[in-house]
Nucleic acid binder design. Sequence first.
RNA 1: UGGGGUAUAGUGUAACGGCAGCACGACUGACUCUGGAUCAGUUAGUCUAGGUUCAAAUCCUAGUACCCCAGCCA
Length: 564
Amino acid sequence: MSTPEENRSLNFIEQIIEDDLRTGKNESRVHTRFPPEPNGYLHIGHAKSICLNFGLAKKYNGLCNLRFDDTNPVKEEQEYIDSIKADVRWLGFDWEDREFYASDYFDQLYQWALQMIRAGQAYVCDLAGDEIREYRGTLTAPGRNSPYRDRSVDENLDLFDRMKDGEFADGSRTLRAKVDMASPNLNMRDPVMYRILHATHHRSGDKWCIYPMYDFTHGQSDSIERITHSICTLEFENHRPLYDWYIQQLGIYAPRQIEFARLNLTYTVMSKRKLLSLVKEGHVSGWDDPRMPTICGFRRRGYTPEAIRNFCARIGVAKFDGVIEIQLLEHCLREDLNRRALRVMGVLNPLKVVIENYPEGESEELDAVNNPEDPEAGTRKVPFSRVLYIEQDDFREDPPKKYFRLAPGREVRLRYAYFITCKDVVKDPKTGEVVELRCTYDPATRGGDSPDGRKVKATLHWVSAEHAVEAEVRLYDHLFTKENPEEADEGQDFTANLNPNSLEVLPSCYIEPSVAGAAAESFFQFERLGYFNVDSDSTSKKMVFNRTVTLKDTWAKIEKRGQG
RNA sequence: UGGGGUAUAGUGUAACGGCAGCACGACUGACUCUGGAUCAGUUAGUCUAGGUUCAAAUCCUAGUACCCCAGCCA
């Protein structure tokens, strides 16, 4: 038995594995697998499973397979297989040559079905779908045996053969395991092993018109691949007795199924069915819409694989079915991006600033550091001239208490440039809106420090109007307004909780010229505005940036507190 | 009136009969050419009721709450 010291900080799966390793089970091998059904794109919940399965294999010097659980041809497509492989790779995992398909086991599975028929453990059932349901009984009442349960082996063999040969219509017959119609576990009440499906499979084509069910496939696939620990989510707990039963009847290598709680995140949904409907009903632009919790959605949004992997490591693995706050994921991203994102200056909502005492038609270049946290990131030149843009939020005509930024008569620093003082405010005569600031600069403060030791309370980011890159910026908010959109009001569609303000497009933003030509999916922190990612999917002529995540905004907090 | 699971600060996760710890969040303060970051600090927890024990989150008993299962989906 294990001692507490050895087990400290291991999750429950690691404890099982280490116990197995100690007792020499499975020849002391660790072999896991990630087994998606190719019927949709991978989401952040799959990332948890991927990190777990590949992570465990790596930690214990084992292997992890990629296996497509493709036993239902009507839902599966090659497009999904391709996206799944791309997403797993992007996350940073490698299945090497171990890319498997349950459909490659169809022949073997068929032989095993024959073996069970011969052993009197399986029979062809002529009951229709609703009849099977009726015979199954309910949660509290036992089921009844099918009238076809006692067919002879020969008749079963003959019928099953003819099922395979396409003699019968979809739904007219099934192959069922003879287990126990009175079992309290409904999965054991003579589960269907094979159904008739005259459908073209994305890989095996029209070779088969009968397809094995999940339960008759998964454990055997694990067994064939000699998986030691078959890790799946909690809803399969009720299937474990069947998983074990098939393997025992067949007398084949027995992997161990272990269940853990799937990931739930606040302000989003995770079920493939719901994500599919968001795509199909046009609530989002596609599976890779930056608001989607899909892996490719997060990628386009500007999440890094490192951040997602780190997130998966932090949330841990347990059997408690809870909900993780999205703030933790955002924290992991900020943590990563803060280290690596280049800082550039950008203005989302421009306010024109004219430096009255700066000569017209002239400009100069100033040195700016690329990342204050990383000296190796170096410096760059930023052009300065008479007409600039600053952020509208950085000026208040009538500043509230504790507001340190620009206001009439006030002096602030333009980052890496000069101290400026606001002398005058120009308003639109019709709307009264502030449209321009007239300022003066102090040439002695070049670079951002005053030789006389004068201090300013705020530092603003800015861009030179004539040099700036015009860009389109997309600001994203949570996809749903509710923390748990699944808990929609009784009978209400979950889409009722979609956030109508989840996407805001700012068409006329100005970014300093150093970003020009930046590669897609590179990221920046626009000083104080958040982290941004160059969008790879842009059809606009301008550069398009997605805001990946905001910085923590202390001013918003101060303001809020003032009101409260 | 069935079966299978799960309960530890707001959230997630440790502690495996011996000081309830960590992270995120929230709140204070320091520092700062980003009101960011960083640093320091504060906050807050064992589902309930009994029992065993010198000692219980942990073992026992009885409850309670929540999740999953009646697809020819996975």
